[in-house]
Simulated scan of single mutants.
Amino acid sequence: MSRFLFVVLPLAGHINAPLAVGEALLDAGHEVAWCGPESYLRPLVGPHATVYPTGSRFYPEQDRYGPEALRHVWDSYLVPLAQFTLPAVERAVTGFQPDVLVADQHAFAGALVAHRNGVRWATLVPSALELTRSPGDAPDVEAFVRAHLARLREKAGLPTGDDVDVLFSPYLVIALTTAALTGSAALPDTCVLVGPALGRGPAYQDFPWDWFDPDRQHVLITVGTLADSVAREFFATAVRALDGLGDRLQAVLVAPADAVPQPPDHILIASRVPMLRMMPHLHAVVSHGGMGTVGEALANGVPLVIAPIRYDQPTVADQVSRAGAGVRVPFVGLTAEQLRAAVTAVLDDPAYRAGARRVGDSFAAAGGAAAAATHLEQLALKGTVSR
């Protein structure tokens, strides 16, 4: 059996997939360890799992959009986090001696330490941010990213001229999507498409399942966990959009309890939901376009309305639209009338659900967490890196 070390980011959209892949490896009899903030990981991996703590850095809230949002998250979070966690990842590699290190694509310290120590490593790609972004799309952003990566290589003590691409492992890149969404986009030579890696997800036993009326359609509205600073107006727009539709649908809006004062009876405000368990009961999802939510919805054949905010979300929205699995609407300036029209379109036109099912079928065929685990097992069999 082999030893796998996962270096992860403490963000909801980045943790569910590695948890599912790690569980598949454990089920196959391998050893799995984790490197990240212990306060975040321990409730997720359990009391007996091996965790190499990195300490924590807070994710900065922001109200930026487009390339400026990308620059901000690199400057204020991703690069400082990589520098901060380099020593901890080094201790994890020394202590655990993994056969393969599995690094979130934006947990740069994992790739840097693996490369420096001659450990085979795999890139786990939970988003479309780098995977389908071509240098020609935004050359200034590409230059900005590459300059940061060069400085990180220097910070990690790599020799001058060592230009290893920490975004894409030369051994294995596992992307949690399929060609049904990426289309003809050029991908790295080492890239495999396995579709979403879905685990069980948190149960959240306090969710009021008896609130669902089986005679009405059900809609989930969520903009993820990192958009609180810009989401309040969107929440109000969503409630206005669905007001008056209580005879045909119920909606669950994932938002703070005080986000929508006195919502109508057919709209439930919940600060957290058992999303994976809920998906089979849904008829549509309104989302910001995070790959985690999109993957979970499409895996269940649920069409989407996507209001992308930033990062890879516009790309994901366009992919879903091209696949015929949903509708893209604007986030900034979205009106209640626009959102109502989009929601009723995906509910009433069976073509959208058919499109979602086609993508979901491609996910099932790709294999998800089990396929990712198999690729990692094969990489582990190749042994250490020759230097």
Rank of each mutant, 00 (worst) to 15 (best):
A122Y: 03
I221N: 06
I306L: 15
E233V: 09
A69W: 07
R322F: 01
A88F: 08
D75Q: 15
L282E: 08
V173R: 07
A49N: 11
F4N: 04
A354E: 15
A323Q: 03
Q83G: 11
Y52G: 01
K155Y: 13
A366W: 01
V343R: 15
A325H: 01
D210G: 13
S184F: 02
L198P: 06
M275D: 08
A341G: 14
Y204G: 04
T225E: 00
L181Q: 10
L245G: 09
A371Q: 12
V219L: 05
R64I: 00
T237L: 09
F212L: 15
I267E: 04
I174N: 04
S229D: 09
Y352G: 06
D140P: 06
Q205I: 08
L129F: 11
A307S: 14
P350Q: 11
V164S: 07
P60K: 10
A369M: 05
A299L: 15
H106N: 14
H115C: 07
F144T: 09
L152Y: 03
F235N: 07
V100E: 01
L282M: 10
I15H: 08
A143G: 13
H288T: 02
V125A: 12
S169A: 07
T384P: 12
H48C: 10
R151F: 01
P188V: 09
S76P: 00
Q250H: 08
G136E: 14
Y40A: 08
P80T: 04
V385A: 09
S127E: 14
A103E: 00
M278E: 03
P188Y: 07
G195E: 10
A197W: 01
A341Y: 02
G46I: 04
G292M: 10
P18D: 09
V21K: 04
L226N: 10
V166G: 02
D265E: 14
